[in-house]
Design a protein around this nucleic acid. Sequence first.
DNA 1: GGCTAATCGAGACGGTACGTCAAGTCTTGCT
DNA 2: AGCAAGACTTGACGTACCGTCTCGATTAGCC
Lengths: 211, 211, 211, 211
Amino acid sequence: MCSRPTPRPAPRTGRPRSAEADEAILEATREVLVELGWSKLTMGDVAGRAGVAKTTLYRRWANKNELVVDAVAVLFDELELPDLGSLQADIEHVVLQFAALLERPETKTALMAVVAESTRDVPLRERIRASIVERQKRLVLDGRRRAQERGELPADRDPVSVDATDDLIFDVVAGAVVHRALVSAEPVDTAWVNRLSALLVGGLGAVAALG
Amino acid sequence: MCSRPTPRPAPRTGRPRSAEADEAILEATREVLVELGWSKLTMGDVAGRAGVAKTTLYRRWANKNELVVDAVAVLFDELELPDLGSLQADIEHVVLQFAALLERPETKTALMAVVAESTRDVPLRERIRASIVERQKRLVLDGRRRAQERGELPADRDPVSVDATDDLIFDVVAGAVVHRALVSAEPVDTAWVNRLSALLVGGLGAVAALG
Amino acid sequence: MCSRPTPRPAPRTGRPRSAEADEAILEATREVLVELGWSKLTMGDVAGRAGVAKTTLYRRWANKNELVVDAVAVLFDELELPDLGSLQADIEHVVLQFAALLERPETKTALMAVVAESTRDVPLRERIRASIVERQKRLVLDGRRRAQERGELPADRDPVSVDATDDLIFDVVAGAVVHRALVSAEPVDTAWVNRLSALLVGGLGAVAALG
Amino acid sequence: MCSRPTPRPAPRTGRPRSAEADEAILEATREVLVELGWSKLTMGDVAGRAGVAKTTLYRRWANKNELVVDAVAVLFDELELPDLGSLQADIEHVVLQFAALLERPETKTALMAVVAESTRDVPLRERIRASIVERQKRLVLDGRRRAQERGELPADRDPVSVDATDDLIFDVVAGAVVHRALVSAEPVDTAWVNRLSALLVGGLGAVAALG
DNA sequence: GGCTAATCGAGACGGTACGTCAAGTCTTGCT
DNA sequence: AGCAAGACTTGACGTACCGTCTCGATTAGCC
């Protein structure tokens, strides 16, 4: 999927924007994130590496945070959910994938930073939701649906309850992995992932019983 | 509990540092966090509000992040775990407390920011662990011990396994609440807390079965 | 004559430097010198009065001293040497002009200060020589040449000797006036100027006799 | 001759001031002037080298400039005027001595600086006059008196005129040497000194004729 | 093929905050 | 009282980025 800079009201005339510049900028942004981290990333530095003028950045993104969100969002689309035959196996697979993604320096440093900024910046929060969060809920939906098809989970009764549980699982899985990796700063290894998936699979029955 | 600025090798002579200044600075820091958030907090502003010179800040804290950690850490000590008679009730109580803490503007904006910075700053990471993370694990330990006394959970067999489970629960609870509140930006209300605690209590048996 | 900020290798691209800013800065510098003197002149204050950012100053001048030299140098170009008919009259005229210049607060406070700094700062010394000292030697040369034309002084024999005498006269006149005005802090009035010019005119014969 | 710090109203009680400290401070001041020059001399540095607290400095001198004047003034007392048999020889001797003094790094950097400051600081100007300028006029007086005794100069007629001429000679000699050494930054060598003394001796007759 | 209009690189611009440094004062306990 | 030590307030320093602006020079599409 393509990250899309600030949309603009389709000018019919004048020189069109360079598509190469777009990608060069996002690539340069990821490079700088890797080397310097979010807080030392500067627009001038990104522009320089991309071989582009600062003006060209600001014509596309309103500020550093929006640029970083776009640069990082595309990485999350690599996550996928192959059918491994059981709910627990599916969970363990995606958790390990997600942990590997969080280990990448460009994600590690950028994700928490933009979320922190988003607590005070509503447009940024929306951009994060649209570009990253909502887009990845598909993993939970697919996993749950597949488990129902296998008979591991009961079929839906109350759609509201199902949505609530999907959201819960999403927050628990994403939150736990992030917390383990970035706050506790402990490895997300097989042993830990085993325990987490056991907790989830074991607990889902109790949650379903709530109705 | 007292937040402690940069320790120093006990000078016997000279004018001692002002203890009032210490507290005035931390208080001013929390004020600015509330009003402006982390990214717009400036050392000069904090100094001004505390009625103190900028150099006095830098004599005690090496940078903005260490100052903010100390200013915020003390808030986490308000969390407590009264005995409500059941594991699930205890969990729900502390989760709601934690969610309320995360709703406070000074915590919301600061916590993620310093964690983000800590991905590139080892001393900062250590300070966060020591001042905030490790200190709150007591809640998990107490809750588990109490549940064992009540017979809700089996007595310890393998101490390694017990530690691993404690850590898991801590990451899951803290991570889920943070993700819900700050990333998903949805309310941590009674319904959600019910579901989360049901998931945990229901899953703990399965985790224990892993040995 | 124009005072010229730091020369630079003629960039063909980019926004050109504002010529208005140049003059506004030098003017503001002279203002601040008058009001506050050299030691209380700050770059921030100058920038503020010139309606310019501090960075704009530093882009043009490396430090306060170079700026002050440029701001003051232009004032010395007002000195001139009208032909008053005799060597002594010419000397008295230019000495009074120079004394009047030294009485101006912007010169009085700045000149000695930058010379003092120049004892430790070779580039500054060169700038002073080029912008101020060498430029004013013309007064001595013109005066001497004119006196020779009038027959008050013998024609040149040894050019080396002539140069040495020109230099001597320059140091004596400039040094004596500065010392009288700034160190002795006594007025450079007609009586004193009479005496000085009598000393010079009377002594020049003896110096010429040295060969 | 001793440089004398701020006089004070003879305290009858309490610990008396350390006399050793006085000299250590002035000595340290000269050291720092040699190594760092006036503009980089700091009170803290001087105090440190003198093995003294900053408070002790400020108890004796009101500020940096007064301290520097006192530290440097004593050096000027080394100048003396041995009888060399002729006015011109006497002049050349003292000029060379003075030039040697101005070559010393502590004098070179400090003298112009404090004079510059004194244009805005009346008490400082008075201190300079009292400690340095007036004290050295003795050289002119002695030289003139001796030349009169030898018959090189006519005996006094009008005492006012004599004073004016003494002052003129003082400003011319001191000013010319300072200007040559610090502004023109050319050596004060025998050839130059010859020329200067010839100018003075040759010109004095013309000045005397003014009455 | 010239016109129009938005793009491009470059770099100067007004700002804001940084973290440091020195000046001169104040506070403590010791002599 | 004087003194050493060192914390204190104040205020300027010179630097680094921010996001905007002005240049002259390219590109396109449209007439």
